[in-house]
Design a protein around this nucleic acid. Sequence first.
DNA 1: TAATTTTCTTAAACTATCTTATGGTTCTGT
DNA 2: ACAGAACCATAAGATAGTTTAAGAAAATTA
Lengths: 195, 195
Amino acid sequence: MSSSRLQQLLNYFEDYWAVEESTVKLLRTCVLERKLKRKESILGEGQLCNHLTFVVQGILKTFHTDKNGNQHNLQFTSENKWVTDFGSLYNNKPTELCITALEPSIVLQIKKEDLFNLYDNSPMFDRNMRIITENAFIEQQERVLQHISATAYERYLYFLNKYPNLSNRISNIQIASYIGVTPEFLSTLRKKATA
Amino acid sequence: MSSSRLQQLLNYFEDYWAVEESTVKLLRTCVLERKLKRKESILGEGQLCNHLTFVVQGILKTFHTDKNGNQHNLQFTSENKWVTDFGSLYNNKPTELCITALEPSIVLQIKKEDLFNLYDNSPMFDRNMRIITENAFIEQQERVLQHISATAYERYLYFLNKYPNLSNRISNIQIASYIGVTPEFLSTLRKKATA
DNA sequence: TAATTTTCTTAAACTATCTTATGGTTCTGT
DNA sequence: ACAGAACCATAAGATAGTTTAAGAAAATTA
């Protein structure tokens, strides 16, 4: 794999702690690089999730398809963010989610066994995954709060404000699916926002 | 503190891993017991969150009060569950949440400094807090999915089904605030559910 | 570049949910 | 046991969001 991409991951970790050389060595042996075309998936409904994934470049969406065939976006993952389906990864349950590239993307992946190995061999790696997960939890909690307390218009403005770079790169259909409205209604919200 | 209540916490941990004697000793010195009356709070808006809290008995609600003075329930925490405001606890930011007892309750609390000390002295404690947080994340994600894809009626049925014991102990006003509808509308949903 | 697909907007009719108000019931603290 | 507070049901009118359909604009692919 390109060493510059592993370096991007190492730089990311260095923001959290001084990574020990033994951990760097482990990462060097187990981190896999994968290039994705637009619309290509790294996880499909019904599969077992076997990887933890780090986005080097591009954007991935994590979505669920309901019984009527409608897709609902749970999460966008862009550069220097992690994505996986914890439920499937840890409990060996087939996933109900799908993770797909919205742009041509490059990701780094760690297989489940290698991940557990890293947890066991580097308490700091373990700890920092805890902290990363805590931050992910805070973000989800904020989203829940938005949905029980804010209107669709407020959620849209919040999204624009919180993810200004994403909102330029992602189609409104994807944004509508993320904030939980129809694309048609988002269109009226957009008109209102610029009025 | 009552040793039987510490024992309940230790039993809880034993479900995750064989707790080392050194960790038990640490817990024995730092775990604080607190009794709460109905409506008594362990965290109020604007304060700094300084504790991780484990519920031994009772139910706590975590809610946010919006600019119009309306309360929105993010979470209920009952026996053998954890509650805190991660954002406030880790980033030293004043909280926008409030954590209040719905019933007379008994909780165990670990102060921030003691918590960090536990993380440093017991990698297994650290690891299991990661796993607990991952599960909390999965639960929040499930809630977000509900809100972007399901109707209020479906969310109500889901709540009844997922938390049958809670729905008996909690008033409908609290449930309405949790699933994100007005109490009046929940009333019509309830009629529909029993029709 | 042309052809094709996807995205975005608009509008009208429809449905879900909220607001306000009222009255009866059940809890809770003293 | 009583008084006050909180809770629950019901209903009418208002608002927020969806559905369907159709056409224009933009992006993607050949």
